[in-house]
């Protein structure tokens, strides 16, 4: 069994956030397999956000949101595993291990398909959107550096970047 089962959610998520940074998001995305899952998680995270009285006291809202989402995910995962183990009690040891291994394999095939899909969505972008996105995300160039390379203002770089993200997001939606 993985250590996830032994740790209470909060420290686990905390550690994930600290140790992995961006990986936390991958952790989330790997576990959100269908858009229905994503909607449920967002819905639940939303309800929890609404329960917080003084939202203005949250100093770092983005990591805070991720923490909530990761918590929700963790609970969903636990619940799914309970359902699974109830169903497969007759050979729990083997089956549960198997069930845990399975998404890993599935995940790889899925991630290859995702990669293909991402590649083709990136090709659909206009030359400027594509350049801005790849230069910033892959090459780590700042807005100013990109602005100089392409010969546009740095506020336009930001506009193109946001456009590119929105395009990818909209066109990957159908896939997930």
């Amino acid at each position: 069994m993985s250590r996830r089962n032994q740790s209470p959610p909060d420290p686990l998520v905390e550690r994930l956030a600290e140790d992995h940074g961006d990986d936390l998001l991958r952790y989330i995305s790997r576990r959100v397999r269908t858009s229905a899952d994503a909607r449920d998680i967002a819905q639940e995270a939303y309800v929890r956000l609404l329960r917080i009285e003084r939202k203005d006291l949250i100093r770092d809202p983005m990591p805070y949101l991720y923490r909530i989402a990761a918590n929700v995910l963790y609970e969903f995962e636990l619940k799914r595993r309970e359902d699974l183990s109830g169903m497969l009690r007759w050979s729990s040891e083997y089956r549960v291990q198997h069930a845990e291994a399975a998404p890993q394999i599935g995940g790889d095939a899925e991630s290859l398909a995702l990669q293909d899909r991402l590649e083709s969505v990136l090709r659909q972008l206009s030359p400027t959107c594509r350049a801005v996105l790849l230069l910033h995300r892959n090459e780590g160039m700042t807005y100013d550096e990109i602005a100089e390379q392409i010969g546009i203002s740095s506020s336009m770089v930001k506009k193109y970047l946001s456009q590119a993200l929105q395009h990818c997001r909209t066109h990957l939606k159908a896939f997930r």
Binding site: D22, D23, L25, R26, I28, S29, V32, A38, R39, I41, A42, Q43, A45, Y46, L49, M62, L65, Y66, A69, S111, L114, Q115, L118, L133, R137, N138, L165, C168, R169, L172, K173
Partner: peptide
Amino acid sequence: VQEFLEVSTLWSTLGVR
């Protein structure tokens, strides 16, 4: 909430894949 999580996820996916 969903759109924000999705765009964050997209960002990290872009970094990896």
